[in-house]
């Protein structure tokens, strides 16, 4: 476990290495990773959520929405970055493009499944009470689809953080992946330390999003969830 001790020493020094001044600090690289990832995720959410919600609302395009998810998973981050590099040359734009290509499919698929899966009777009741299509989306479908919708965004967030670090392998500099890709300068202890930081960062992102999801999930739904997992209510408690 000597390597881990060394790695934690590297983290404690915030990425500084004796005899190699001028290296970026781990804090700086972590924030850069978050910045690059956040931009990609934000663009993806803006594109994918409306698309998925709309497809789910009109109950169309299930084939496209679901297969988009499969294709998205089939795209290796490194291959997407490599092909983007070959065609357009590597830079922040290509990295963000790759992030969006990878993050849009899971968000679309999950938003679609979430909204499409909302109980049709509820939508019927909402329509029968005179809600417009937009009101149905805002007041009924979106609150009820928060779970799947956020599951998609979480999956995408993990993809995006992971891919941002992989971008360093393709030669893009400005993330914690830089340390991992540059063992010559940082030695294995630095690589391991950066790997620990990357893992912690991804888990933190996942944790924060899980918390946000919990806050956004309507209380009534959590209760309903509870009831569903319990024994069936035999309507015994009437009046």
């Amino acid at each position: 476990m000597h390597e881990f001790l060394e790695a934690f020493r590297f983290i404690a020094h915030n990425g500084a290495i004796a005899g190699a001044p001028g290296l970026p600090t781990l804090t700086h690289l972590a924030l850069e990773t978050l910045r690059v990832a956040a931009i990609g995720l934000a663009i993806s959410v803006v594109i994918a959520v409306p698309l998925g919600v709309w497809l789910g609302h009109i109950h169309r395009g299930s084939f496209a929405a679901i297969n988009l998810g499969n294709i998205g998973r089939a795209l290796p981050s490194l291959a997407v970055l490599a092909i983007g590099d070959a065609i357009l040359g590597l830079g922040l734009t290509v990295v963000e493009l790759a992030l969006v290509v990878l993050a849009v499919p899971p968000i679309v698929t999950n938003a679609y499944l979430g909204v499409d899966g909302v109980d049709r009777d509820l939508v019927d009741a909402a329509r029968g009470m005179g809600m417009s299509g937009f009101e149905i989306i805002r007041r009924v479908e979106l609150p009820l689809a928060v779970g799947p919708l956020f599951a998609g965004i979480r999956t995408a967030a993990v993809f995006v953080v992971s891919t941002t670090t992989i971008a360093s392998l393709a030669g893009f500099s400005g993330s914690l992946g830089d340390v991992i890709a540059n063992e010559t300068s940082y030695h294995f202890s630095g690589v391991l330390g950066a790997a620990i930081c990357v893992a912690a960062l991804a888990l933190a992102v996942e944790g924060v999003l899980t918390l946000v999801q919990r806050v956004l999930t309507p209380r009534g739904l959590r209760l309903a969830e509870h009831e569903r997992s319990g024994p069936l209510d035999p309507e015994a408690a009437i009046a």
Binding site: L169, I180, A202
Partner: peptide, 19 residues
């Protein structure tokens, strides 16, 4: 399994190299 799934591949490979 969720924690394992969440750790980015680049990091997990390196974390395993140590042991």
């Amino acid at each position: 399994t969720t924690i394992l799934y969440t750790i980015p591949s680049l990091a997990l490979f390196e974390l395993l190299v140590a042991p």
